[in-house]
Design a protein around this nucleic acid. Structure first.
Lengths: 238, 238
DNA sequence: CTCTGAGGTAGACGCTTGTCTACCTGGATT
DNA sequence: AATCCAGGTAGACAAGCGTCTACCTCAGAG
């Protein structure tokens, strides 16, 4: 909801918070008037110019702040979730060697990462509303910036899947495609999560299933079906 | 691109086309001014009031027209694609009986449906830009309307998957979830398709793989892994 | 102690905007 | 032949807009 206290001038932060608020409640960024924004922030219209050249610059500043806050925590959580199944510094077994364990680890990471992500969404709904809105919005600059954000997220995810061996090995391209799809879907679902607070648990489950399906299906499609079936079989009979 | 000739008053169509054009090139609908729109359409500002109460009404009119155009063709194409593998009126075998044939049919339907959808996107880029933009836009009315559109698409898809047995049997809820995800992703990908004309083939393939992965993974997740593996095995050795 | 520059304000400017009332036109209904 | 009314126009209005120039303030560097 609110932006972090930082070295930003007070007026700048006030403007950014006002933009988040107005964007969420009424209009998209580029439909916002400078004076309206200043009014909401309780400042003189001209103050805007002290900090931003135009609305794109404002948008970029907001985007930058928010992404800086969640990107690293997400990566760390993936590691922690993985380590909760297999202690740190244990050499990670290949999927051939121990499919069952790897599946358990992947499931755990999946569940916890989804949860953290949605937690962050719930704490910063306005930022996500702005992000998703401007991802498809009228400003090419913000569109580009947000696409890069999602691209970074997807790359992080692909790296982590690789390092933590969260699915059987795949070509880098295919892995990235999957990560991209998952990222996109998570952002989409975050809107549902915000708008339908009473369905939050179901949305979590839906997201987990979506991710599991995508990853499993992709594994099957790339010839790792047998391994996967083995892991599932052992899982059920154990 | 252009809206269909119909019984609409000329001015009304002119306004709708102008809205599509401006929306795609510069601003989102709710950032559009009435006079700007009228100027683009070559009409007097007041003419707007003769046809629409406000911009939401304009948006709804556009959305209604566009969806009326693609919904039925998509369903029919799914049937045609299915029939190109198995002649019409042939009783459809269950997945247990003939997994290989069913997989082939599903693959064919997948490919052709994706193609048709993207063809339609290429012919009406501005409509899709508007649709995707307003799906996450500031107007709750348009958001709701577009969500219903996507919901209808997903339901159609689920029905067709059921009727044409395009994947092993699943609970209705799970099937709908998958259809919903696929629909959402297809709309997302349509933006890429529009913006990156040189990558259209790759995007088609990406979409097909995404759909296949999702469906296969979901099948595995619901205990149909063995059947699927059988179909794939036979597919490779034939 | 002075200077400087970042952050904030005040007022004014010419435009654009949404909307109102009034008027025109030509084909269909009666 | 008279009338109606949907579709389109014209002009005017106050309100809101972005942006300009000028001025204020005060913490920190010299």
């Amino acid at each position: 909801m609110s932006l972090p206290k930082s070295v930003l001038a007070q007026g700048k932060r006030l403007l950014m918070e006002a933009a988040l608020k107005l964007n969420a409640s009424t209009r998209s960024l580029n439909a916002l008037s400078l004076r309206e924004l200043a009014r909401e922030a309780g400042l003189n219209p001209n103050t805007f110019y002290r900090h931003f050249k135009d609305f794109d610059e404002l948008g970029l500043a907001i985007i930058e702040e928010m992404t800086g806050q969640i990107r690293q925590p997400l990566r760390e959580l993936r590691r922690k979730a993985a380590e909760s199944v297999v202690p740190a510094h244990t050499p990670i077994a290949s999927w051939q060697e121990n499919p069952r364990l790897n599946l358990a680890r992947a499931t755990q990471v999946n569940r916890e990462t989804v949860k953290l992500f949605f937690d962050y969404v719930a704490e910063n709904p306005n930022a996500f509303i702005l992000g998703i809105r401007e991802l498809h919005g009228a400003s090419p600059i913000l569109r580009r910036a947000l696409r890069k954000v999602m691209d970074d997220f997807a790359r992080d995810m692909a790296d982590d899947i690789n390092e933590l061996k969260l699915m059987p090995e795949l070509s880098q391209d295919s892995l990235y495609d999957i990560s991209e799809t998952i990222t996109r879907e998570m952002f989409q679902l975050s809107m549902e999560y915000i708008e339908q607070p009473e369905r939050q648990e179901q949305i979590c489950i839906k997201a987990e299933k979506m991710i599991t399906s995508l990853i499993m299906g992709s594994a099957v499609l790339h010839g790792h079906g047998a391994i996967l079936m083995g892991a599932l079989q052992m899982d059920q009979t154990s």
